[in-house]
C-alpha cells in the first residue's frame, strides 16, 4: 500500500515538474527543438536539473542494498546498442518533433482535454502496435527454432 501511495505522489510531483518546467507547452518544446529558428534554449535546463539531482542523489541511493519497500532496484539489464534502440529513437524523435509532445507531458496535458487527448489515444495505439509486432516476431523466431 505504501508503495502505491509513493507511486501516486511521485506521479504528482513528476507532473508538477513538467508543468513548472514548461514541457507541457508544445509551442515551447518546438521552440527548443527549432535550433535554426528563434531558438528557446530554456528546456535544456530541465535536463540539467533532472539529471543533476539524479547524478548526485541517485548514485547515493543505488549504493543502498535495496529500496524501502521492494526487494531489489529494478534497473534495465540490456547493454547492446542495437537496431531497435536506434530506430525506436528515430521514430520517437520524428513524432516528438511533429507534435511537440512526449509521453509525460501528453498525459499531464490530456487532463485539460483538447488535442492532447487525441495524441494520448494515438500513442496508446502506437504502443500496442509495437508490442503486437514484437510478440509476432518472437513467435516466428520460436517456431523457426522449433523447426530446426
Amino acid at each position: 500500500m505504501s508503495g502505491l501511495v509513493t507511486a501516486l505522489f511521485s506521479g504528482l510531483l513528476f507532473g508538477a515538474g513538467l508543468l513548472v518546467s514548461g514541457m507541457t507547452m508544445p509551442s515551447k518544446v518546438l521552440g527548443f527543438l527549432d535550433v535554426a529558428g528563434d531558438w528557446d534554449p530554456s528546456l535544456a535546463f530541465v535536463m540539467v536539473g533532472g539529471i543533476g539531482i539524479n547524478l548526485v542523489l541517485g548514485r547515493l541511493l543505488l549504493k543502498r542494498a535495496a529500496p524501502l519497500w521492494a526487494p531489489v532496484f529494478s534497473l534495465p539489464t540490456a547493454t547492446a546498442i542495437d537496431g531497435p534502440l536506434v530506430w525506436g529513437a528515430v521514430i520517437f524523435g520524428i513524432g516528438w518533433g511533429l507534435g511537440g509532445y512526449c509521453p509525460g507531458p501528453a498525459l499531464v496535458t490530456a487532463a485539460g482535454g483538447g488535442q492532447a487527448l487525441l495524441f494520448v489515444a494515438a500513442m496508446l495505439v502506437g504502443m500496442a502496435a509495437e508490442e503486437w509486432l514484437a510478440r509476432r516476431r518472437a513467435l516466428a523466431q520460436a517456431s523457426c527454432v522449433g523447426d530446426g
Binding site: I91, F92, L98, G99, M123, G126, M127, E130
Partner: peptide, 12 residues
C-alpha cells in the same frame, strides 16, 4: 505524432 511517439518509445 502520437502513433510515432508510442511506437518509437516502445521499440527504443
Amino acid at each position: 505524432a502520437g502513433l510515432l511517439v508510442g511506437f518509437g518509445s516502445r521499440l527504443g
